[in-house]
Structure formats: structure tokens, C-alpha cells
Amino acid sequence: MSALPGAAVRALLLVAAVLLPSAWPAGLPRADLVVLVVAAAALMRGPTTGLLVGLAGGWLLDLVPPGAEPLGATALAYALVGVLLGLARRYAAASPLLPWLATGAASALLLGVRGVVAAAGVGRVAPAELLWSWVATLLVSVVALPLLLLVERRLVERRWA
């Protein structure tokens, strides 16, 4: 009945999503795992949950080494993405392809923000790197997103979230 187990599971998933890229072989483009967790929660539960999970994931990305500057900016960006994905919830059930497309769009939005900020002179980024990161996220989400959605569905079924 309580929402606590659901929050704990999502927190665990977020921590794993933030820490797992360390095990990624060096040189390969890094997939964004946090956006997948945010997308699964938002697509199942709506904008408010999407915002909260996005905030939490962004804070983790901001704080866990190497972290990001300024503190909280990543959290705000992921919160925005969580809200947008939550608004897309009603269309997500139409086709199993739609969550994947929505996640791809969300990832593109995040990377696009990063690219625009870098183009404005704050920070530095290689466009090819962004593109490859996006492709890697899309590829990983093919497998990971259905699993995460399944977890979310189980949480709903057990009224844990």
C-alpha cells in the first residue's frame, strides 16, 4: 500500500544506472542509463513521478564523481525530461515502439541541451561524441527499457508505487 518500496526500488535503479558506466569498457560511447530509469517511471506513472525520479537521477549525476557543474543543473534538465515523458504517458500504451521512441527523443533533448550550452561557450563537447552517446543509449534501451517498464508494472500491480 505504501509508496516506499517503489521509491526504494527506483532509488536503487538510479544508483545502479549512475555507477554502472564505470564498468563500461573505455573507448566505447557511454550510454545514458539514468534517462532509461526516468523514462520507465515517467511513462508508467506520469509527470509528477517523472519529475521526482528525474530530479533524483540528476542529483546523483551531479554529485557522484566526476559530477557536474553547476550543482543541480543536471537535476533540472532530467526533471524537465521526466515531466515531458510523463506527459507522453497516455500515448505510450498505443505501441511498444512508442516508449522507445520517446526515450530516444528525451535522450536527444538532453544531449541537445548539452550541445547548445557548449556552443554558447560554457563547457566543451564534441558533436560526434554526443551522437555516439545517443546511439549507444538507443541500443541499450532496446533491451533495458522493456525490463525497466516490467519492473514498474510489477510495482503498480503490487500497489507499491
Binding site: G58, W59, A75, A79
Partner: peptide, 13 residues
């Protein structure tokens, strides 16, 4: 939480 995050960003800037 959103407001707190925005505040933290401003403070860090």
C-alpha cells in the same frame, strides 16, 4: 524539491 534544486543551482553558480 524542484525549487530547492533551482536554489542549489543558483547558489552553486
Amino acid at each position: 524539491l524542484l525549487a530547492l534544486t533551482a536554489g542549489a543551482t543558483v547558489a552553486d553558480l
